[in-house]
Amino acid sequence: MVMHRDSEMHVRRRGRNLGLLVVLIGFIAVVFAVTVVKVRTGGLQEGFDHVLRPQMIEGQTEGASQ
């Protein structure tokens, strides 16, 4: 079996692929961390859904009528 040395192009391509792998793993880790944090808060964060809720009005308590 003859061993041959990789060309410079293959070495550079391998380096780019490893760099891309690190970036993708980092992105997946960030998305996973955000998901875990959101699940652990138990829905304490409210999204902006263009609906006026009583919690948005300052000074108004639950069940108070206007």
Rank of each mutant, 00 (worst) to 15 (best):
L52P: 00
F32Y: 09
R53H: 14
A29L: 15
F48Y: 06
T61D: 08
V37N: 03
E62V: 08
H4Y: 05
I57E: 05
T61W: 06
E58K: 15
G59T: 07
R12T: 02
L20E: 08
N17G: 12
I28R: 02
R53Y: 03
E58H: 09
S65N: 11
I25T: 12
V23D: 00
G43H: 00
F48S: 07
V31S: 10
D6L: 10
G47E: 03
A29Y: 03
V2K: 14
T35D: 06
G26R: 00
L21R: 07
F27S: 15
A29W: 04
S65H: 09
M56Y: 10
D49W: 00
Q66M: 10
V23M: 10
L44T: 05
F48K: 05
R16N: 02
G26F: 01
V23T: 04
L20H: 12
H50G: 02
R12M: 05
G15F: 02
K38V: 05
I25M: 13
V36H: 00
V31H: 01
T41M: 14
R5N: 08
R5K: 11
E46M: 08
V36L: 15
L18R: 12
V23L: 13
V51Y: 06
A64M: 14
A64N: 08
V36R: 03
D49R: 01
H50E: 11
G26Y: 01
L21H: 04
L44C: 03
H10Y: 05
R53D: 08
E8Y: 02
G47F: 04
V51P: 00
R14W: 01
V11S: 02
L52I: 15
R5I: 08
V30S: 05
F27P: 00
Q66L: 15
L52S: 03
T41D: 14
G19T: 06
Q60K: 15
V37T: 12
F48V: 07
E8D: 14
L18E: 11
L20N: 12
D49Q: 04
M56S: 10
N17H: 02
R12S: 09
R16Y: 01
R14I: 03
M1E: 13
L20I: 11
M1I: 08
V36Q: 08
L44P: 00
H10I: 02
S65M: 11
V37H: 07
F32C: 08
F27V: 14
M9T: 06
S65D: 11
T41Y: 04
I28W: 07
M9I: 04
L18S: 09
E58Y: 04
Q60P: 00
S7T: 06
R5M: 10
V39W: 03
G26W: 00
